[in-house]
Design a protein around this nucleic acid. Sequence first.
RNA 1: GAGCCAGUAGCUCAGUCGGUAGAGCAUCGGACUUUUAAUCCGGUGGCCGAGGGUUCGAGUCCCUCCUGGCUCACCA
Length: 492
Amino acid sequence: MEDINRLVRQRIDKYETMKREMGVAHFPNTYRKDTDVSDFIESYLSKSPEELMEIRKIHHLAGRVMAMRTFGKASFIHFQDASGRLQAFFEKNTLGDDVYALFKKLDIGDIIGLWGTPIKTRTGELSVYVQGFELLTKSFQPLPEKWHGLKDVEIRYRQRYVDLIVSPEVRQTFLTRTKIISALRSYMDSHGFIEVETPMMQTIAGGATAKPFLTHHNALDMDLYLRIAPELYLKRLLVGGFERVYEINRNFRNEGLSTRHNPEFTMMEFYQAYADYTDLMNYTEDMISTIARQVSGKEVVTYQGMEIDLRAPWKRYTLRDAAIEVGGVPRDVFDDLPKAVAYCKDREMDITGDESLGELQLALFEETTEEKLIQPVFITSYPTDVSPLSRRNMENPSLVDRFELYIAGREIANAFSELNDPFDQRQRFVEQLKKKEGPSELDEDYIRALEYGMPPAAGEGIGIDRLVMILTDSPSIRDVILFPLLRKGEVS
RNA sequence: GAGCCAGUAGCUCAGUCGGUAGAGCAUCGGACUUUUAAUCCGGUGGCCGAGGGUUCGAGUCCCUCCUGGCUCACCA
C-alpha cells in the first residue's frame, strides 16, 4: 500500500485510535448475523409503525455502510448486504455515550454487524432501531460519490469490486447472468442432456476458424493451444455412446476486441444424436424464449431501444433469400462468381478475388444483411465450403444443413447437422488446411473416431455472453463479463 | 493494426484568447435527537495521464508515448 493518499491515511489513523482507545477488535470474525436485509424488509415492510413498536425481536444484521446522516444525538445510515439495502437508526440515548462516539467514527464503506428491532421512522421508512453494533471490517479506501456513482469505465472494469459495491444495476446484470446460466443448465438437464467437461488445453486447436493462444507445458515440454472450441471433443463423446451432451465453458480466441468480442468468452455447445438441424431450431426457440420468461418474466424484451419479440416460432430464411430480400443483393449477383466479385469490389469489401462463390455469398450476407436482422431469425442453407464440419444437404451437396441464429443484428448461435462421414470429413479438413486461417494440423484422431461410427446428430453453439447482453440490455460484452481483458496497467 | 474522442482533487465535472488551478459530493473541525444528495459555519486536499518542445509565461499550443472509449479492420 504505497502511494497512500491523505484520505487513506486518515482512515488508518482513525482505525488505530479506535482499536487503541475505544476497544475495537482487530478484524474480528466472530460476529454472526441471523437475518438478511431482504428478509427483514419482507417481514416488516407492510406493518404499521404501531405494530412494529410491539415487536421486541432483536435481529442481527451485517453489511457495508453506504450513506450516513449524522446529527448531534441521533443518526441514520444506509447499509447494504448481498440481498439489499436498509436504513438503520442510531440514537445516543439508546446506545450510550461511548457506543455513539464509536459510531460517529465510522466511515462510508465500513462493514459492520448491527442488531436491533424493526421500526418505522417519521417518514415511514422501515429501519433497524439499533441496540448495538460492531465494526467488522474497516474500509480504508474511499468509495465513489453517492450521487453520480462510478462513471469512469476503466475503473469500473479494472476494479469491478468497486463497481459492484456502488452500482446496483451492475450487480443486477451479473445476478441475471447467473440466473440465465442456471436456467440454461436446468433446461438442458431436463431434456436429457448431460453436462461434460472437455480439454481447454489442446494439441490441435480445432472446431472453429480462429487464431488460438499458445502455451507450453514444462514437464512434457509440449506446446499447447487454449481451445477455440470444444466441438471435436464433444462429438467424440457421441462416438463414445453418450447421446446428449453439453458443455458451458470458456473459449479463447486470439483476435481483436470489440463491444462484441472478448478474447475469452463463454459458449454453450451441445450435441444430440438422432436429431438434425431442424430439430435444433425448434429446440432453440423454445429454450431461449423459456429462459427469457424465467429470467425476466417476459418474452418481449427491449434491447438498446429495439423491441425484440422472443416468442416462438421464429422466422426462417435461407442465406440466399435473406441476402436478396433483406440485404438487397441482386439475385444474379448472388448466384454468379464473377458478378459477385465485381459487386464486392464495388462496395469496397476486403476480398482477394480468390474466394469461392460460397465464401463470397457469406461475405455478402454479412456485409448487407446481418445488422438488419433485429428480430430472432434462423438463417439456413450455408455454402459447404464455409462449413467444414457440417453435413451436406441431401438435394444440394454444395449447401449444408446448418443455421445461424441472429438477434438484434448479432450472431447468437451456430448449429448444424453433423458431418459423420469420415471420408468426406477428411476431404473437408484437407480443403481447410489449404486456407491460411484454420487449424495447422489435421486432427487424425477425430477422423478415426468418426471411423468407429458417430450416430447421426446435430450440434449447436450458443454465445452466452451475447445472449446475456440481449437479456440484460447491455451495449458491450464488457458489461456482462466481470473482469474483461484490458491492457496491463494501473489506475492511478 | 487505423481513425476519432477522452484523461484536471478520493468521486463527478468546470477551466474563456496562453496570464496566480475551481465547484459539488467525500474528507477534517464545529452546531444539530426522525434524516433521505440532510442542513448551516469553517478548513484541508492537485506531478492538470507521462515525457519532450515553443514561449517571459503552458491544464490550455506542438511532438512522442501510456491508458481507456467508440468506429473500422481482424473475427463462421
